[in-house]
Amino acid sequence: MQHKMKCSTFLRKYGRILLGGGVLALIILISLAAPLITTYDPNALNPLDQNQFPSSVHFMGTDRFGRDIFSRVLYGARVSLLVGVLVAVISTAGGIVLGLLMGYYKTLDKIVMRVLEGISAFPEMLLALTLACIFGNGVDKVITALAIVGTPSVARIVRSQVLSIKESEHVESARAMGATDLRIMFKYILPLCVSPIIIRFTTTMASAILTEASLSFLGVGVDPNIPTWGGILSVAKDFVITHPYMAIYPGLAIVVTVLSISILGDGLRDLLDPKMK
């Protein structure tokens, strides 16, 4: 009985972290082991086999060029995950630093906020496109462009949190103790803005995967020969009505990845909150 109790509390505490982290680890493992699992070259064109529905030969069917979608989805995970995770990490880190500084220092806020508003005034897609054009092709360039696009929204969320938390008495008591500004920002304010940051992190990741797809589709992103989930989707978009499977599988891959990160994020947030223990 006691063992059972322990088991249930263990699950309540770590269940979501195990589930989210496990699925994510599985996806990463599969993408790395793609050459061992797949039987087709993801870039091999096969005009005779184009637009094939899923079958025992082509597990997820083929696209308009006769490329095996199963192979492409597995290989595509490499770039898509890299872009998604790195963009989310960089723009969250940048957004946290900017947001803390803006929320804490009024003068800085007035200057930096105007710049960020300027950036946000452009439609995200257009800005990403412009930046990608300036930087040129390549995964690293795309990541930089998308990180610049993603930073302002994180910064604004953090800033708004800082503005309200800054006025609370526990921050004032830290000042009364003689804590430095940096200590107050990172030890007294940041830990209390974790929830919205985690939520923003997962949405940034999902949108980075999709925006990378659009950029690749427009020819300014990743080399079109490198399979990415977004790239598969953009090829599939003309066939959604007649051959829905082409979009469903890469779409499913994106959904599962984002969901696992979101569940992992929820689990981490609750683990960090002493009230949930």
Binding site: S168, E169, H170, E172, S173, A174, A176, M177, G178, A179, T180, Y188, P191, L192, L272, D273, P274, K275
Partner: peptide, 21 residues
């Protein structure tokens, strides 16, 4: 900051003046 060692303040609301984490 160094002088703050010698002067402290106790606030009205004991619920919000402690770091919750």
């Amino acid at each position: 900051r160094a002088l703050r060692k010698d002067m402290q303040i106790v606030f009205q609301d004991p619920y919000s003046s402690l770091h919750p984490r």
